[in-house]
């Protein structure tokens, strides 16, 4: 570009820079407050997903190779172990079914809403780097599978987090231990309600519990269903310590999540319950304004276990 040539304002690098910078800030604000990010992510993920696959493919090949070379006796051992676990699980399920029917009947007697079993879909965690935001994970289900922001994500041991952003065939999950995450919980034993914040380091902290509240180390925390993001009664964490807060007005508790958040491999996506409407419609709906609030009741009960 020659210096003598008269340049338009729009050709100035500074002008372009400021314009794009403004676009970035606008995009961030809009992405933070609205749903405008979703179509953009969906479109761009057509470009980015192949990149994810490039990283994922060697890992899958390695896993397959490992499987192929595993000794047969180890496989046999694994097999018998799994069979044993399965029969155990079946036994538990049998008992659970009886309990559930009983529970349902009692609820009907007390004129409470019936609790429906959770409907879940399995997803795999994609092992990739998620940048400076540390308590995140990427899963291999996305918008085309009906995944929506705010959807609860479990692993086999307990609540893992919620869906944050969705792309076409993948989604980013924010874990409950992320410093930006707040989770309404209740103590299973006493029904005491509080909010659990992520603290990093794979721990949760409940900073504001009334001094009179009934909470002890060893108590199990479940989701309370408040706020409508999570269904009620999902196992979250076990209280490890209760200490007076710094100013002495409250007590605070720290808790260890049940979910194996450090080595998350397989997760379950929870679908909202819609008793009257068809379940297909629930899956097709992708806005997070609806909530499984029909599961909330005024009286805390001890029925909340993931079936």
């Amino acid at each position: 570009m020659s210096a003598t040539r008269e340049t338009h304002l729009t050709e100035l690098p500074l002008f372009r820079f400021l314009l794009l910078e403004l676009a970035c800030i606008l995009l961030m604000v809009l992405d933070y407050h609205t749903h405008i990010g979703r179509p953009i992510r969906q479109t761009l993920s057509a470009l980015t997903y192949p990149l994810v696959q490039v990283v994922r493919l060697p890992q899958q090949l390695w896993a397959n190779a490992e499987l192929a070379f595993t000794r047969q006796e180890r496989l046999l051992k694994d097999n018998t172990e799994l069979k044993r676990q399965l029969s155990n699980a079946r036994m538990n399920l049998l008992q659970l079914e009886v309990l559930q029917q009983e529970n349902q009947r009692l609820r009907r007697l007390m004129h409470m809403r019936e609790q429906l079993p959770l409907r879940t879909t399995a997803a795999f965690v994609i092992n990739i780097n998620t940048g400076t935001q540390r308590h995140r994970a990427m899963i291999d289900r996305g918008q085309r599978d009906g995944v929506f922001p705010g959807q609860a994500v479990l692993d086999l041991h307990g609540l893992a987090g919620q869906v944050d952003t969705t792309e076409l065939a993948s989604a980013h999950v924010i874990l409950i231990t992320d410093p930006g995450h707040a989770l309404p919980v209740e103590v299973l034993r006493s029904g005491q309600r509080s909010i659990a914040y992520g603290q990093g380091k794979h721990r949760l902290i409940l900073p504001e519990i009334a001094k009179s509240a009934d909470i002890h180390p060893g108590d199990i925390l479940i989701t309370s269903g408040f706020g409508g993001v999570f269904p009620r009664g999902l196992k979250v964490a076990r209280v490890t310590a209760v200490t007076p807060s710094r100013n002495g007005a409250f007590q605070q508790a720290s808790a260890q999540p049940f979910a194996n958040l450090e080595h998350l491999k397989e997760v379950l996506l929870v679908w909202p319950q819609m008793p009257e409407k068809s379940t297909k419609a629930a899956q097709d709906r992708t806005d997070d304004t609806h909530s499984p609030s029909m599961q909330m009741d005024a009286i805390p009960t001890q029925s909340g276990h993931t079936p």
Partner: peptide
């Protein structure tokens, strides 16, 4: 930068 934001799930922009 936008592609990286989509990949990392960070705020767009």
């Amino acid at each position: 930068g936008l592609l990286l934001d989509v990949l990392y799930g960070s705020l767009l922009g």
